[in-house]
């Protein structure tokens, strides 16, 4: 059984009388332990897909099964629970709580999981040490670099040991050196068995992944295994797949 499976996923935004088909029939299956990069030009629906996978949004139609559970059948509390325990999400813009220490930012998911104070501390420390911030626990976001902030966000995403890590352009706001560090952490997590799906439009970031999904206009254009480290090329445009695109 795959870790997650989406079938014929559609997401349609209606604005006035114009319809935007952000996702137009996406099917995807992810096995446990995979390391996937989702690529594609801006507006191709990558973020929309990630938000649906992260249970942050609901599709217009289509199926999403996560660990054998149909996500569309879950109520708001159960969705919150899934986000808390099954999924870690890393955003392009970090989304850390301001004027709150790194440690407390990382503790946040555990707070909603009902973990006791002592245990929260222990696990948050461990997560921060894993991302190499063992000496920055008391720092506030405004006292840290972008790369450090993103590492705090990663620690927060993995602190509940969710098994699935989703990252939407995690290096989008970072320079090359910081990007490289972040990818090193993802690689380390992947080596421990964590399933990772990350969105990027930088080929040297995608090069770390073992599977690359290309998207275009709400469709999956190609979905191929990839040898980590080898260069990433856009797929040849297949007239049969790129419907109506010049």
């Amino acid at each position: 059984m795959p870790l997650l499976e989406v079938v014929d996923l559609h997401k349609i935004y209606t604005m006035g009388d114009t319809e935007v088909r952000a996702l137009d029939g996406v099917s995807l299956s992810v096995e446990s332990g995979e390391f996937i990069a989702v690529m594609g030009s801006s507006g191709s629906g990558k973020s929309t897909l990630m938000n649906l996978l992260g249970c942050l949004d609901r599709p217009t139609s289509g199926h999403y099964v996560l660990r054998g559970e149909r996500v569309s059948d879950l109520n708001r509390d159960e969705l919150a629970n899934a986000r808390n325990r099954l999924i870690g999400f890393v955003f392009q813009g970090f989304h850390l709580l301001a004027r709150t220490s790194a440690l407390e930012n990382v503790e946040l998911p555990l707070l909603y999981a009902g973990v006791s104070g002592k245990e929260r501390h222990r696990r948050s420390r461990k997560a921060l040490e894993l991302v190499g911030l063992g000496d920055r626990m008391d720092h506030h976001p405004n006292q840290m670099s972008g790369g450090q902030q993103q590492r705090v966000a990663i620690a927060r995403a993995i602190v509940t040991e969710p098994g699935l890590l989703l990252a939407d352009e995690p290096t989008g706001n970072l320079d090359t050196r910081n990007s490289h560090e972040i990818m090193g952490i993802f690689q380390k997590l992947s080596d421990t068995g964590m399933t990772i799906v990350l969105v990027t439009h930088e080929s040297d970031v995608a090069a770390w992944a073992r599977r690359i999904v290309w998207m275009r206009d709400g469709h999956v254009l190609s979905d191929e295994p990839h040898e980590p480290g080898s260069p990433v090329h856009p797929p040849p445009i297949d007239p049969g797949l790129s419907l109506g695109v010049p």
Binding site: R76, A80, H95, L97, L108, R156
Partner: peptide
């Protein structure tokens, strides 16, 4: 945005 983040990491509506 803070509320959104709290929800994203598992806060239920009643929290």
């Amino acid at each position: 945005r803070e509320i959104g983040l709290r929800m994203a990491v598992g806060a239920r509506p009643r929290d």
